[in-house]
């Protein structure tokens, strides 16, 4: 298989990249890791007139922690680099749990977090993680920069709110105001397959009670599911069994999976329920141990 014909440019400056897209009048496409885009091109699901390869733009491959604990992840930070990041391992448990199960180790050499969020695959992992963490995406275009919360950024299957010729240049996880906890669980038939179902949870604690909660689900809806009500049920709790059960019920309710070769809708909803309980039980155990 090989893609249809397109032009290719590999600009060395961000403004040049935006300009190239602008000139293509809506027909250009940004190429970062390419691990979703190139397969789509090969299947001829996408046929841009030009690929604007941002891999040679300088200074976009960073994973930075600010002094307040916020994370800034550049558009060229590969999954593999996030996997090897000590800062992520030490400070960001939701992302740390997700990254080893994103695609497979070889794909993780190339694919990027920002690209994955932009691709907005309903079965993707990173959009769920970023929604659970109140994360945002920074877009750069002719009007300058703007920041968009990921929960508002992903609008449907393979749809985001980037306004052509904007380019997503960074993802941000805001500074925590309490003690950070979280987790990510995904069911996949084998390594590298799309998620059957998955759950991402990001929490913050103050004095032993939940002061911020985010729960997002993958593989169980037409787009990444933001299970807001489920997260709300955890607020001010200390993850007692009632709060945990209520959150799991609400997360299962928020999901709208379809029956397919990966499992029935009921099965997937059941997995969501189990995963939410399991992640929260793990966090509760860690909290008890620390106390």
């Amino acid at each position: 298989m090989f893609p249809g014909r397109f032009h290719y440019a590999s600009p060395r400056a961000l403004d040049e990249a935006v300009e190239l897209l602008q000139k293509a009048e809506g027909e250009g496409k940004v190429l970062a890791g390419g691990q979703s885009l190139i397969p789509l091109l090969k299947l001829r699901f996408a046929s841009p007139s030009i690929l604007v390869d941002i891999n040679n733009l300088p200074g976009l491959d960073y994973i930075k922690v600010e002094s307040d604990g916020a994370f800034r992840i550049g558009a060229l930070a590969r999954h593999g680099e996030i996997e090897r990041s000590d800062d992520i391992a030490r400070l960001q448990p939701t992302a740390a749990a997700a990254v080893p199960v994103v695609a497979d180790p070889i794909v993780r050499s190339r694919g990027t977090l920002v690209g994955s969020v932009c691709h907005a695959d309903p079965q993707g992992d990173w959009a769920a993680v970023m929604i659970a963490l109140d994360g945002s995406v920074t877009a750069y275009g002719p009007e300058g920069k703007r920041s968009i919360m990921v929960k508002d950024f992903v609008t449907g299957p393979f749809q985001n709110v980037l306004s052509y010729p904007e380019i997503a240049i960074e993802a941000t996880i805001p500074a925590p105001k309490g003690d950070v906890a979280g987790g990510f669980l995904k069911l996949e038939r084998r390594v590298g397959d799309f998620a059957t179902a998955g759950a991402a949870i990001g929490l913050e604690f103050n004095a032993g009670r939940v002061s911020r909660a985010g729960i997002a689900l993958t593989g169980v809806g037409g787009a990444t599911v933001n299970a807001e009500a489920a997260a709300e049920a955890l607020m001010n709790s200390s993850l007692g069994s009632d709060a945990v059960m209520r959150a799991a019920d609400l997360a299962a309710e928020a999901s709208s999976p379809k029956s397919d070769h990966r499992g029935s809708a009921d099965y997937k909803r059941h997995i969501v329920h189990t995963f939410v309980r399991r992640i929260l039980a793990g966090i509760a155990t860690d909290q008890e141990r620390a106390a």
């Binding site: 290719y8 190429l31 390419g34 397969p39 180790p105 070889i106 794909v107 050499s109």
Partner: peptide, 8 residues
């Protein structure tokens, strides 16, 4: 390591 079928 990269999958050369998915790199131009």
């Amino acid at each position: 390591p990269v999958k050369s079928c998915t790199v131009l």
